[in-house]
Simulated assay, not measured.
Amino acid sequence: MKLTVFGATGQVGLQVIKQALWQQHEVTAFGRNVFDIKMDDPNLHLFKGALFDEEDVAAVLQDSNAVISAIGGAFDGSDKARSLGIKTIIAQMKKAGIRRIIALGGMGILNADEDTLLMDTPSYPAEYIPVGNEHRKAYEYLRDSDLDCTFVCSPDIINDGPTGNYITSHNYPPAPNRYKINAGDLAQFMLNELEKNEYVKARVGISAV
């Protein structure tokens, strides 16, 4: 499979690339600092570009089969990389005829109940609201796009490799929930989901066990 990875230089993006190459996928990593990636593999291609530049995004998507987005940004919500970046990617995916995208977001946009998101409950930590709003906008763009999207709603991310010991659930936090997950396990789930397609057009709750 030919994959394009956005947010390639972050902790989850780097894990996605490592594991995708091990699985013999052809990977194109996209980003401003993408040449900081020091991996020597003939199936890895580095594309230096700007996330808000439509021409750059269109160019990197040529011949791709699917997209994985691990876009990060400021925790205080002061930049719009997560939301407007996804909006740009969606537009160019549609033009290129690419339908499958798996994107990383935050746990706050999972359901607390049928009518309320976790981030809209009174007990949700106020310091997570700004970044939660970015995740909410990114998810809404994906939900309304009609693409075959999966939105992975991560708790706190530990910068460590895969263990394979995690649980997932549709649209709600998993139970039990340890409120943390390794970057490597997020990457493992995202790549497995490309093959299994168990969470198409859904949010995913995930937690270490």
Rank of each mutant, 00 (worst) to 15 (best):
S145Q: 04
P155M: 09
I129K: 03
D146W: 01
G108Y: 07
G164Q: 11
V152F: 02
Y124N: 01
S123F: 09
Y139I: 06
S145T: 08
L117M: 08
H135Q: 02
D148W: 00
N165C: 13
P122C: 07
M107E: 07
L117P: 02
I109N: 09
D113I: 15
T116I: 15
Y172R: 14
E140D: 05
L142G: 03
E140I: 13
D115P: 00
V131F: 04
G161Y: 05
N111I: 11
I109L: 11
P122D: 05
G108R: 06
T150E: 04
A126G: 00
R143L: 06
P125F: 04
C153G: 08
S154F: 03
P122R: 00
H170Q: 12
H170L: 14
S169Y: 07
G106N: 09
P155Y: 05
I129N: 01
L118T: 08
D146T: 13
L147N: 08
E127K: 07
C149L: 11
Y172V: 15
A126S: 10
N159Y: 05
I158C: 10
H135S: 09
N171W: 04
V152M: 04
E140A: 11
D160H: 14
L110V: 10
G161N: 13
Y139N: 06
E127Q: 12
M119P: 06
S154N: 08
S169R: 14
H135K: 07
P125H: 05
F151T: 02
I102C: 13
A138N: 00
A126L: 12
L117G: 03
T168I: 14
P162H: 08
D144S: 13
V131G: 01
L118K: 01
E114N: 12
D120T: 12
E140R: 14
A138S: 11
I102E: 08
T121F: 01
E127T: 08
D144F: 02
T150H: 02
G105I: 12
T163K: 11
C153E: 00
V131W: 01
T116D: 03
E127A: 06
L142D: 02
E140V: 12
Y139R: 06
I102T: 13
P125I: 14
N165G: 11
P125Y: 04
N111L: 15
E114A: 15
G108I: 14
G105N: 05
V152Y: 01
V152A: 06
S154W: 01
E134V: 08
K137C: 04
N165K: 14
G106Y: 05
P173A: 13
L104K: 02
I157D: 07
K137M: 10
F151W: 04
C149A: 12
S145N: 04
E134F: 04
S154T: 13
A103L: 12
A138V: 03
E140P: 01
